[in-house]
Simulated scan of single mutants.
Amino acid sequence: MTQEDIRDTKARETSRADTVLKLERQLCFALYSASSLFTRLYRPLLEPLGLTYPQYLVMLVLWERSPLTVSEIGAALGLDSATLTPLLKRLEAAGYVTRRRDTADERRVLVEPTERGTALKENARDVQKELLCSLPLPAAELTALHETLGRLNRGMRGAGETES
């Protein structure tokens, strides 16, 4: 093998290694970018409801089951109480949720939608319909993507728990 052949081989290896580091090839960036775009798409749809995207997620959890403790909401959304507390205070100030101490254990704060917060649920159905209509994939692909991301999230949560 000549010196030129060795240089060519090294150049090809470097080029392949550099390809792995391209931003467009990063799954994490594709997920991050899609998440940012989703949040942007939701903004004008949630604005008439007086909700931000994170507040909308909290309301979704509370519409499914309530009352919930702050830690239960955090577990469902993957958020810590330091992030949730100001968010919940804003929802309470808007009249969408109530927070109260659990009489059985005063360390726990229970959160539930108010009547006004429950009424938002009907309008939230329209938000979902409008958002789905604006997505560039057919329903079957969106369903498959949702299932794949669910498996990915569950697997990553499981991997994180075993490392602790």
Score class of each variant (00 low, 15 high):
22 K>Q: 13
71 S>E: 15
86 P>Y: 00
92 E>Y: 04
62 L>C: 02
130 E>Q: 11
44 P>G: 04
142 L>H: 05
127 V>K: 07
12 R>I: 04
37 L>K: 04
32 Y>T: 05
102 D>G: 05
91 L>M: 06
8 D>L: 07
40 R>E: 14
131 L>R: 11
33 S>Y: 04
108 R>M: 03
46 L>I: 08
124 A>D: 14
159 A>G: 14
39 T>V: 15
104 A>V: 14
158 G>H: 14
61 V>M: 07
63 W>E: 02
63 W>V: 01
150 G>I: 08
68 L>D: 01
142 L>K: 06
78 G>Q: 06
160 G>K: 11
48 P>N: 01
39 T>S: 14
121 K>P: 02
14 T>Y: 09
11 A>Q: 05
61 V>R: 12
114 T>K: 00
36 S>P: 04
56 Y>E: 12
34 A>T: 08
133 C>L: 11
76 A>H: 11
149 L>Q: 00
84 L>D: 00
103 T>G: 13
73 I>W: 01
2 T>Q: 09
161 E>G: 03
7 R>Y: 10
60 L>F: 09
141 E>W: 15
35 S>T: 09
9 T>N: 06
20 V>T: 07
35 S>E: 07
124 A>V: 15
148 T>S: 03
30 A>K: 10
58 V>G: 02
76 A>I: 12
125 R>T: 15
152 L>V: 06
100 R>D: 09
3 Q>N: 05
36 S>V: 10
100 R>H: 05
14 T>S: 07
107 R>M: 08
135 L>E: 00
122 E>W: 05
68 L>G: 03
84 L>N: 01
2 T>R: 10
5 D>K: 08
103 T>F: 14
16 R>F: 05
95 G>M: 10
81 S>N: 15
15 S>P: 00
23 L>R: 12
134 S>W: 10
25 R>A: 13
151 R>E: 10
44 P>T: 10
106 E>C: 13
102 D>K: 02
17 A>C: 12
137 L>W: 09
135 L>G: 02
135 L>C: 01
26 Q>R: 15
31 L>A: 02
53 Y>Q: 12
41 L>N: 15
25 R>E: 11
67 P>A: 10
162 T>W: 13
30 A>T: 02
134 S>G: 15
92 E>R: 01
35 S>I: 12
145 L>S: 02
69 T>L: 03
160 G>H: 10
91 L>I: 05
156 M>C: 13
63 W>L: 03
28 C>E: 13
48 P>R: 05
15 S>G: 03
19 T>W: 08
60 L>K: 03
145 L>W: 04
116 R>M: 09
137 L>F: 13
102 D>C: 03
64 E>Q: 12
59 M>E: 04
62 L>I: 04
31 L>G: 01
156 M>Q: 11
50 G>W: 06
146 H>V: 13
114 T>V: 02
42 Y>H: 15
72 E>T: 05
105 D>V: 04
133 C>R: 15
64 E>M: 08
126 D>S: 15
162 T>C: 06
67 P>Y: 06
115 E>Y: 10
56 Y>Q: 12
104 A>H: 14
73 I>K: 00
56 Y>P: 09
66 S>E: 07
87 L>E: 06
107 R>F: 09
31 L>C: 05
75 A>P: 09
108 R>F: 01
25 R>S: 06
58 V>I: 08
79 L>I: 04
